[in-house]
């Protein structure tokens, strides 16, 4: 009961923060909705990266720090191969590369470290992160590369008669959102309707039980890392098409950590909702809260979005330790 009350208080605060700029008239509705949409778009990308985390965590209990590096590597592969061949072929080849990567990781990292402490596995994926970042840039180069999806980049004005000045949205943002929705739908189908998907869910539920009824754990891990690789590829291509493929893409993984805390480590809907909440919250904080903070404390610029996601996640952790949709478990010391 007490926990629920805390949660309600937190939610009320968040909602108040969300409505405040509009209610106090600090911004006009059109601009407000633009910020909101911008936040949602960033949130879609966070969701995609977080989705990769959740898939791997569910199936193998590994907290995959390397997801960001996988996003960068996949995006670099697509971008550089698309220079010499059509985009669709480059994407297919990149998917092949990510599957090969899954095999290698399973064989060289996961299998020797099976049944180790989660923190040890986390550190191992840190090693994978460094290796993959170095390897990707050694092979594909470390400049900024473009991915051209063939979608016009100029913004489109909509709802001009509803708001003064209308709302600007980018076509590629809409395409990104559509791609994300399609991907999630495909994943849901894969998990719910195929035999492999059912095996994956069984492993996520209980490793030992799954193994004892004859589900090959090693193969499941390869599959799940491959799926996470494909998700990383989609995220990387969308991000790369928007901002260019460069090293900073891999840093998006750091933003996905609070997302999985918020949504729960084991929940796919949680990852998506968490990503959207973090994306919107962070944009709102940066646009509306940062100027106030800068004025009040005489700061040298805003940049609240660097840590806002983490503080939000910590707040959630205090009232809801298992996240929005995570599995509830009790262990105490």
């Amino acid at each position: 009961m007490k926990r629920n009350r805390n949660l309600i208080i937190l939610c009320v605060f968040l909602l108040a923060g969300l409505i405040m700029p509009l209610a106090t008239g600090a911004s006009d509705p059109g601009f407000y909705i633009e910020v909101l949409l911008g936040g949602l778009m960033a949130g879609v990308l966070y969701s995609l990266v977080a989705l990769g985390f959740v898939l791997i965590f569910k199936a193998s209990g590994v907290f995959n720090f390397a997801q960001g590096a996988m996003v960068l590597f996949a995006a670099l592969s697509v971008a550089r191969m698309a220079e010499v061949m059509p985009l669709w072929l480059a994407t297919l080849l990149a998917i092949g590369i990510m599957i090969a990567f899954a095999f290698i990781v399973e064989r060289l990292v996961l299998r020797p470290l099976v049944n180790q402490d989660p923190v040890v596995l986390l550190m191992a994926t840190l090693g994978v992160t460094y290796f993959l970042n170095g390897f990707g840039q050694a092979v594909w180069g470390s400049d900024i590369y473009e991915i051209n999806l063939g979608i016009a980049k100029e913004p489109v004005m909509i709802l001009q008669n509803l708001f003064q000045g209308g709302i600007l949205i980018n076509k590629d943002d809409v395409a990104a959102a559509v791609a994300a929705v399609v991907l999630v739908a495909l994943l849901a189908l894969f998990f719910q309707k195929t035999k492999t998907g059912r095996a994956l869910r069984a492993v996520a539920d209980d490793h030992l039980a799954a193994q004892s009824i004859g589900i090959p754990l090693n193969r499941i891990w390869v599959i799940v890392w491959s799926v996470a690789g494909v998700v990383a590829l989609v995220a990387g291509v969308i991000w790369g098409a928007k901002l260019g493929v460069q090293f900073s893409v891999s840093q998006v993984a750091l933003k996905a950590l609070p997302v999985v805390i918020l949504g729960g480590f084991t929940s796919i809907p949680g990852a998506i909702l968490g990503g959207l909440i973090i994306g919107v919250g962070e944009k709102m904080a940066e646009v509306f809260l940062a100027p106030i903070a800068v004025k009040a404390f005489d700061l040298a610029g805003g940049g609240i979005e660097n840590w806002f996601a983490y503080v939000l996640a910590l707040l959630f952790l205090l009232v809801l330790p298992e996240g929005l949709f995570g599995e509830k478990h009790i262990d105490r010391v």
Binding site: Y130, G134, F135, A138
Partner: peptide, 21 residues
């Protein structure tokens, strides 16, 4: 220098995994 720093990252990464295993 870029190649050296990439190599460095690769060697660090491999060593971490190597030592953990």
């Amino acid at each position: 220098t870029a190649m050296v720093s990439n190599l460095e990252a690769m060697i660090f990464g491999s060593l971490i995994i190597f030592f953990l295993i």
